[in-house]
Design a protein around this nucleic acid. Sequence first.
DNA 1: ACCCGTGTTCGCTG
DNA 2: TCAGCGAACACGGG
Length: 279
Amino acid sequence: MPELPEVETARLCLERWARGRQVRGVLVRERRVVAKGGPPLAKLVGARFVGFDRRGKHLLIGLHAKGKPLGLWSHLGMSGKWLRRKTGEEPPRFSRVQIDLSGGVTLHYADLRLFGRLRLVPGAAFEKLPAVAALGPDPLHEGVDPDRLGERLQRSRKAVKPQLLDQRLAAGVGNIQASEALFRAGIDPRRPGRSLARAELARLARGIRASIDYSLADLRKQIGATGGRDVQYVEEPAGPNPFRVYDRANEPCPRCRRGTITRLIQDARSTFFCPRCQK
DNA sequence: ACCCGTGTTCGCTG
DNA sequence: TCAGCGAACACGGG
């Protein structure tokens, strides 16, 4: 379930599970998750995990291999997850790549739909990857600047919601966070992005940050429930829908209580909004 | 059987 | 250079 908050959660988990550990073995069960053109994942053997970064939905993991930097890039696509098991345990469903570490820890990259990818990056030169180089500001790092957002929105005639999925605007905003941010900002998702006034851009920038912070706190609660080193990645995030409008078609609006959350399709993706309080 | 989906890339047009 | 669009990738769940 990967938008920025889920990827940040995966980053935190990987850091707790792998920091300082050395790779003992790699097993690729499904070749398609290894991005074409990169070095074979077997080159990870002997390397030690040292850094765990994220930009937008991209995981940028740093290792030391014989004293030289080596990067592991990971994008979760639609259904990718990082999971931890004890070495020798049964692999989880849809485990596509298994990385055995020192200390009896094994990482699994599991991915049902196979849209996610892993790639080794020599020298940890992640900025050489075109998809990473093109990313806009990360809401949790640089933050979203209303002026910059407005400048970017001016370049297209598209509606604001589909535009928010463009990773050059704000890296990490996906289909859920786009609907949630526009709801918080009180902006109709069908409005042309270039029609937003200054005050609306400011509200949108705050809305993006607020919806991401909220989702991240919700996920942190789930993984942190057991605390400390016993933290487990939640594989089946049960529980009620944590969102204000996403996947709530036909429910009353949680803000105005009088509008009805409406679903519409924009650029072949679902959008949810309240027609009464999003103008 | 059929439709849906929390994402991105590629090829092509204008 | 770049916006825009459709197709492609892939497969379980409703």
